[in-house]
Structure formats: C-alpha cells, structure tokens
C-alpha cells in the first residue's frame, strides 16, 4: 500500500468512526427522541451532512499533520510496524494528556464536549492502527 492509499483509507475509516462515535455517544447521553423532534428531521439531516463533511476534512488534515510526518521521517529506516512501536506510545500519551487537559479546563462541563473529546482521542488512536497495518 502506498502513502496516498494509506492516507485515503485511514481518513475514510477515521471519518466513519468519528461520526458513529460522536453521534451514538450524544444520542446515548441526551436521551430519547421525542415525537415533536420528527418535525425537525430535515434540519437534523442537513446538520448531520454538514457535520460529516467537517469531520471528514478534520480527519484528513489530522492524518496528514499528525501521522504522516512520522511515516515520512522513518520509513527509510524502519518498517511500518517498527514505526508504530517507536512513536505510537508517545503519540497516545500526548494526545491523552491534551484531551484530559481540555476536558478539565473547559468552563462548561457539558456531555457533548466530553463526547467530542472522547471521539477525538479514540479516533486518533485507531487511525494509527489503520495507517500502519500491514
């Protein structure tokens, strides 16, 4: 698999994961859908489409900025598995610390913010696994 294929495949998977995780966590946290909510279905659908586009752009940029540099720097010396073992632990620790720091420093503790942070962390971690797999 070449680099562009890796980027495309990982970004696509990351987008699907992020959309699924964020929406399911929010639905679980904010409870049942009321009958009256069905009237707003077109707005919800439009919001879903727009948010999905934004998420996919963010995922693509995140993969290029936070994973590809490690790959580019080390691919001449190590194979993808070795690159993963060398850098993934620190990446995971740093992203965990940043996400936890954000969660603790938010003035408004709303479930949707926490859900967003959980989604960011889990998506970034799983993206590494997809990007560096055989």
């Amino acid at each position: 698999m070449n680099l562009s294929q890796r980027i495309t495949a990982t970004s696509l998977r990351a987008t699907i994961t992020a959309i699924f995780l964020n929406w399911s966590l929010n639905i679980l946290c904010y409870g049942k859908i009321q009958k009256t909510d069905l009237d707003d279905l077109p707005i919800v659908f439009a919001f879903f489409i727009i948010s999905s586009i934004i998420i996919s752009v963010i995922c693509y940029i995140s993969v290029i900025l936070t994973i590809v540099p490690f790959y580019k720097i080390s691919i001449t010396k190590f194979n993808p598995k070795e690159i993963f073992k060398r850098y993934f632990p620190y990446y995971a620790i740093v992203s965990f610390v940043i996400c936890t720091g954000l969660a603790f420093n938010m003035n408004i503790i709303e479930p949707f913010i926490i859900n967003f942070i959980i989604t960011v962390f889990l998506t970034s971690v799983t993206s590494w696994i997809w990007f560096f797999k055989k």
Partner: peptide, 14 residues
C-alpha cells in the same frame, strides 16, 4: 492504562 487494548490488537493484526 490508556491504550493497552489497541496496542495488543495492532500486535495481533500484524
């Protein structure tokens, strides 16, 4: 504590 499961999964896959 934060990602052991993921790292083990990657190891198994690869």
């Amino acid at each position: 504590c934060i990602v052991s499961v993921f790292a083990i999964y990657f190891e198994k896959q690869n």
